[in-house]
Design a protein around this nucleic acid. Structure first.
Lengths: 338, 338
DNA sequence: AAAATAGATGTTTGCGCAAACATAAGTCAA
DNA sequence: TTGACTTATGTTTGCGCAAACATCTATTTT
């Protein structure tokens, strides 16, 4: 075996055995060198590393992953990549995983629970160390799979409901009520609501509506977009809402993009904000700071949620514990539009 | 073996062998049922599927992946998730891969070639079917690894340079020249440039600058942000550029977010666009349509680039072919800001 | 009726790695 | 100088699956 023959015909792609042959050691020694475990002499260390580099050896995790059970993959499923909220959470997740040399494998569910289930089932075939999902609403099938496999699962963005094992997010209910309370205190009574109803927005709005109606206010109009939520959509729906005879005093939007679109409509049409109509958004995206007028909104710690969810996957023990809730605070940002 | 004993104590997590035991068939038959290949009777088919579901069996790709060589993972590395351009490309990639039941494993390089190399090396340990990278600029180490492993690699967003094996994008050079030509024809001669210099923007600007200077124009100011490119940044830098004594006639921005920020500054400060200063962006993001004024920009087919790159990975043969270039057309969108 | 074929299932084997164990040489204390 | 450890390496084994091949039965063809 101590044969430094550089002409060795290794298989394609090269294996540890090929590296071992070139370096004149055993396969196991190569394994030790490449993982940095156990005892290895300096001489052998160098020979092996050189050999690996010279033949272009790349570790094969499919093989090693089989014998042990410690996989550096984390499954991540988000509803959309078009929504900044999710890309910011993803950023937090990605940055955190990077630090630990873990990789996200991921899927986009298009806001469909069925597709989410399919994707998760597929992701589980990679035996990921953990799973990060958006929201608390999932199919029964998904819940069952997760229980049966016992995969460590973090649910992000929402904490109002039953978590599988840990949820990370703000209270949508509280955020809705907080905004309602603020707007009522400002004296507004006639409200409109513009949204695209994803689960989180739905919870927020229900709390908002209940609070308003219990305190002498009224939701006189609601507009639910079927398309995705964007500035353009917000602008169009705002035009609709304001064109009617019963003009609301305030429009509450399901997110900042919609609200910013509404503001653009008002600027274009010379509608005074907040005198003619007040506007409020949700999320507290940073682009709001660049607008001519600061929009009132609720700021949510999206990046941090991603970071903490990822950290939890990495560090926590979940041996039969009860579901945990990691509550993040949302913050009312009072701008010039209310 | 024909033993339908439901009390069978299977290992945790369950394997095909466990399913086989419960269903009273051989492991190989289970494999056939679950993959839908070969001959299986209806009776056995049902028994196996039921057994798999009842014990919560999830396919283990780490095992199967070893014996064959056909992996449903695709490695994807993008510079950032904060930049909409990349999330839109990712959407195209993700949608396309979804259709073929392939999954992206992915990493964010933070615009660092060194980090990109590290991530790619790590991704390769999963023996992905292909790799999608952003841009044509990579470390020598990365190039070497890709050659040695022969992994099928698509490079997206840029085609002005040497591709490893296939590049998908627009000609940044041409886009820069096109905008320069248009603005010169409009009569503008004094230009400012605001950017965050990533490789693509750099190429675009160099072509833009050369064209301007060769045709009697002058770039009187350039501002390079060290932070990420955002509306807020665009607004601040625009304020700076316009505060000097030598006011440019036009500001060319490296992307639409910056340009929109500039527009917001002008709206706020009552600066007339394009009379006092003209503005031009890049990308043609859809949120521009919601702004009070249409910004002149260059529209790029980001989603399509993602789709085509993914399709190429899925379908093409790359046995020693020369590098291919898939050229997409960018389109000048003339708005009201020039 | 014999031969050929389609249909349904089982058995053996090996993928590339790392855990577990085995060996062997060198170092140190008593 | 012996035994106990430390350091450095090798050997065997099995992870879970799918390819390759082997059987065997029921049809169909000639």
């Amino acid at each position: 075996m101590r044969n430094k023959n550089k002409e060795y015909q290794y298989t394609n792609p090269p294996t540890m055995h090929d590296v071992a042959h070139v370096a004149g050691v055993s396969q196991m020694t190569v394994s030790r060198v490449l993982r940095g475990t156990g005892y290895v002499s300096d001489d052998v260390l160098k020979r092996v590393k050189d050999a690996a580099k010279s033949i272009g050896y790349v570790h094969n995790r499919l093989a090693g992953g089989m014998s042990k059970y410690d996989n550096p993959l984390i499954g991540v499923v988000v509803p959309s990549l078009q929504n900044r909220v999710f890309t910011e959470v993803l950023s937090g997740i990605s940055d955190t995983l990077n630090k630990h040399n873990l990789r996200p494998v991921f899927g986009v569910s298009e806001y469909s629970q069925e597709l989410e289930e399919e994707i998760v089932f597929d992701l589980l075939s990679w035996r990921p160390r953990g799973l990060i999902l958006a929201g608390l609403e999932h199919t029964d099938g998904l819940r069952r799979i997760i229980e049966q496999t016992g995969v460590k699962t973090a649910e992000i963005m929402d904490i109002d409901g039953d978590a599988l094992s840990a949820s990370f997010g703000i209270s949508q209910k509280e955020a809705g009520e907080q905004m309602a309370e603020y707007l009522l205190n400002k004296g507004y009574r006639n409200f409109a609501y513009i949204a695209w109803l994803d689960e989180r927005a739905k919870k927020r709005f229900n709390a908002f509506k209940a609070y308003i109606e219990n305190h002498g206010g009224v939701i006189s109009q609601t507009r639910i977009s079927q398309k995705l939520l964007s500035m353009k959509e917000g602008r169009e729906l705002t035009a609709e809402v304001l064109s009617g005879s019963d003009r609301p005093e305030v429009i509450y939007y399901a997110n900042d993009d919609l609200a910013a679109g509404g503001l653009m409509h008002c600027i274009t049409e010379n509608i005074k904000v907040p005198e003619d109509v007040a506007l409020a958004g949700f999320n507290g995206l940073s682009f709001l700071e660049a607008l001519p007028v600061q929009i009132t909104t609720t700021k949510t710690p999206r990046y941090e949620i991603g970071v903490e969810a990822a950290n939890w996957i990495i560090n926590s023990q979940t041996d039969g514990k009860k579901p945990e809730t990691y509550r993040f605070e949302s913050k009312l940002i009072i701008g010039q539009t209310t």
